[in-house]
Simulated assay, not measured.
Amino acid sequence: MPILADAHEPVEADEDSSLPEEVISCLKSSRFLQLGTSYRDYPHVSLMNYTYIPKGDATPYEEGAVIVMTSERQTKKFFNISANSRVSILVHDWVSKQTTNDGPQGLTQFLLSMNQAELSSISATLNGRARIVDDEAEEKFFKEKHLASNPADARLFIDAENVAVIVVKVSSARVADLDNNVVRWRKPGSESTPQLSSVGANGTSYANGTI
């Protein structure tokens, strides 16, 4: 059963100030996300643990909802964000596992597949701006929330020496479910991201529009 709108063509979501409920639920339940950063057309992707903080819970430092992560300062992603605040995030609650001929067969494999399918629902690509927190009190505030929402073994990546706090505000999203239904969302007044719209006679792609 489709989780999003029952259509294979993209559907524009209401452009209110809140992310779609499916995305919020995914952000609250997943442990990791993939963070995309770039510098001078060189992209970089990192696997990150994170904390989603709903609207109202990040005051007095942020009015809306934010995603909090931490990074050592001597990393590619930290350098990229310092130079280019635009980021992309992939978060999903799909469960997948590579299968081989040595794995369980017959009814066992069928039941495993059913179980994985039930756990799978959406994949969300989020776009927004990241900032590196430079205020000591604010850094402590977000680190405490980040520590509280992650397991003890994540402390090494959150509260170690030379670790910076990164706060991301999401401005747009593209959400897809297993039936390839797509919902696009954009926060009112936010910048849009290019979308492939046509290809010229010489093969050149032209982009415009919003995510």
Rank of each mutant, 00 (worst) to 15 (best):
177 D>F: 08
100 T>L: 07
120 S>Y: 13
80 N>F: 07
3 I>E: 04
19 L>T: 03
143 K>V: 09
146 H>T: 15
209 G>I: 10
5 A>Q: 00
101 N>E: 08
22 E>M: 13
90 L>E: 01
94 W>C: 09
151 P>L: 11
173 A>E: 00
206 Y>K: 08
54 P>W: 05
100 T>Y: 02
8 H>R: 01
10 P>Y: 05
107 L>F: 05
76 K>W: 14
181 N>A: 06
81 I>E: 00
32 F>H: 06
103 G>R: 01
75 T>R: 11
177 D>K: 02
121 S>R: 13
52 Y>K: 06
77 K>Q: 10
192 S>L: 10
122 I>P: 00
46 S>P: 08
170 V>T: 08
210 T>K: 05
135 D>E: 15
22 E>Y: 05
133 V>N: 01
93 D>G: 01
73 R>L: 14
21 E>N: 09
208 N>T: 11
165 V>M: 04
99 T>N: 11
73 R>N: 10
153 D>Q: 02
73 R>I: 13
64 G>M: 10
202 N>H: 06
133 V>H: 04
141 F>R: 05
178 L>M: 07
15 E>Q: 06
188 P>D: 11
40 R>V: 12
184 R>Y: 04
114 M>N: 07
138 E>L: 14
43 P>Y: 15
124 A>Q: 03
161 E>F: 07
108 T>K: 09
66 V>W: 01
203 G>R: 11
10 P>E: 04
41 D>Q: 14
66 V>G: 02
175 V>E: 01
192 S>R: 10
80 N>H: 14
20 P>A: 14
101 N>M: 10
44 H>F: 09
36 G>W: 07
139 E>T: 12
132 I>K: 06
24 I>R: 10
58 A>T: 03
206 Y>Q: 10
147 L>P: 04
203 G>W: 03
155 R>I: 05
30 S>G: 06
173 A>Q: 02
29 S>P: 03
36 G>F: 09
102 D>Q: 11
59 T>M: 14
62 E>G: 14
35 L>Q: 05
131 R>A: 12
76 K>T: 15
14 D>P: 04
113 S>A: 07
91 V>K: 00
190 S>V: 07
164 A>M: 12
70 T>K: 03
209 G>M: 09
85 S>K: 13
91 V>T: 08
97 K>I: 03
134 D>R: 14
31 R>V: 08
137 A>D: 07
86 R>S: 15
75 T>N: 14
12 E>Q: 08
23 V>H: 00
93 D>F: 09
142 F>I: 05
128 G>M: 09
9 E>G: 02
185 W>P: 00
178 L>S: 03
160 A>L: 11
43 P>T: 15
21 E>H: 02
11 V>F: 04
36 G>N: 10
187 K>E: 15
208 N>M: 04
85 S>L: 14
109 Q>C: 02
67 I>D: 00
26 C>G: 03
118 E>R: 12
162 N>L: 14
117 A>S: 05
167 V>P: 00
19 L>V: 09
106 G>F: 02
165 V>S: 01
36 G>R: 06
38 S>L: 15
101 N>C: 06
181 N>Y: 05
127 N>A: 12
33 L>T: 04
47 L>F: 05
122 I>H: 00
109 Q>M: 12
20 P>S: 08
108 T>C: 06
5 A>P: 01
128 G>A: 11
105 Q>C: 01
8 H>P: 00
182 V>L: 10
34 Q>H: 11
11 V>P: 00
29 S>Y: 01
96 S>E: 08
